[in-house]
Design a protein around this nucleic acid. Structure first.
Lengths: 111, 111
DNA sequence: TTCTCATTCACCATTTTGGTTGACTGAAGG
DNA sequence: CCTTCAGTCAACCAAAATGGTGAATGAGAA
């Protein structure tokens, strides 16, 4: 198998590609920092599973963790999401650039 | 295990979470519609693997296919990507809403 | 001291993913 | 007729992701 380079764009996309993780992000954004247990209580899923989802979000840079002994306060970190719409913006501008060039050729076939 | 609902947001995120598929999209956006073989020739990967990646993009609605007998012309379809930044925009506005409420409480503690 | 609590760790089973190879299809060209 | 060609389909494989259970941790309360 090919070695999987750990580019952060893939990591962020993958993190938000899971509905549970998106739901976690939504809750955190709406309600502010919460403990792991508080987050887990919203889901029909084991605490461990939620803890793992949180770690995925954390390594992707989408949430931060403030550990106060037993309690870990998890907070959304939306800065990283700029990476994503930057990528899409770039994609769309390349697309429009190509369409414009195409348009020019159609309007000015003699050049 | 929990049944995996096939929501289209997850599908789109998952599709673009792979570097090869992002590269495919980029090529298509820059160069316009291409055949499966032409796309595959850019990668150090079997034609079959690329064919599969293309199908993932297709079912996610990120590319379209125009089949002219043997040749399949693959084209980028960027409309679907609006779904993604709509989701992030919503997330960030919820975030700012909460911060603003917080700010109000801090500035006006007596209300 | 013992019990509680929040969380991670270590392991296990199942599913998904990314890739390979080989067979198949069916028009078009010799 | 036979071969070529573009692409999919099917079977298979290894690795990673998902989720579960149960144990470990270690401060603080009783």
């Amino acid at each position: 198998m090919v070695e999987r380079e750990s580019d952060s764009l893939s990591e962020v996309f993958k993190a938000v590609s899971d509905p549970t993780r998106r739901a976690l992000l939504t809750i955190l954004v709406q309600e502010g920092p919460l403990r792991v247990t508080d987050l887990a209580s919203r889901f029909d899923m084991s605490l461990n599973a939620i803890s793992k989802h949180i770690r995925v979000l954390e390594t992707a840079g989408l949430v931060s963790r403030e550990t106060r002994w037993r309690e870990h306060l998890i907070a959304a970190e939306l800065e990283r999401t700029r990476l994503i719409d930057a990528w899409f913006r770039q994609l769309r501008s390349a697309w429009e650039l190509r369409l414009n060039r195409l348009q020019e050729v159609l309007e000015d076939p003699e050049t």
